[in-house]
């Protein structure tokens, strides 16, 4: 048996091959996006199950190092989301978040991390539908980018 044959044969013996699913982490502010995600839940909207949520008080609390740490730990995608401009529960935390993450986006590219693996958005407490859509779209986007192989690879 040649090496090639072994490789093609293996999945058959292991049963139906499972499709690769990206691992995504989301940092959501308590007052808007986390509440929007709750609303998506109570409205029974369906979206892909790839993302796990870390609740933070404000998108302004999301230190860019959390995003970098997530990529270091091998996550395939990171979502940060907070209140719409002007709606921040803490007046202006989301503006700081926006600035930091715009800069971070550039830094990620510089590090060789594809920009489509990181997404920053505004989702309000009333936007359950938007939350489900953003998660669905982002999950698809990360899926397309494939497994994250590490910085610069």
């Amino acid at each position: 048996m040649s090496e090639e044959q072994v490789i093609t044969k293996e999945p058959e013996t292991a049963g139906a091959p499972k499709e690769w699913e990206p691992k995504i982490i989301g940092f959501l502010c308590n007052w808007c996006t986390y509440a929007g995600a709750d609303l998506a839940g109570s409205s029974r909207l369906k979206y892909p199950a790839n993302m796990r949520v870390v609740r933070v008080p404000c998108s302004g609390r999301v230190d860019p190092q959390f995003v970098l740490k997530a990529f270091e730990r091998g996550f395939d995608g990171v979502l940060v989301s907070g209140c719409h401009p002007g709606d921040c529960h803490y007046a202006k935390g989301n503006y700081y978040a926006r600035r930091r993450h715009m800069l971070l986006q550039k830094f990620l590219e510089h590090m060789g991390i594809e920009p489509e693996r990181f997404h920053f958005d505004w989702i309000s407490a009333a936007e359950g539908q938007k939350f489900a859509e953003v998660v669905e779209e982002f999950t698809g986007q990360v899926k397309k980018a494939g497994p994250f192989k590490g910085v610069g690879k």
């Binding site: 933070v56 008080p57 404000c58 302004g60 609390r61 230190d63 935390g93 700081y96």
Partner: peptide, 9 residues
């Protein structure tokens, strides 16, 4: 108010 913006800064 506990927003944590300072922590990230």
């Amino acid at each position: 108010h506990g927003c944590g913006t300072c922590v990230a800064a």
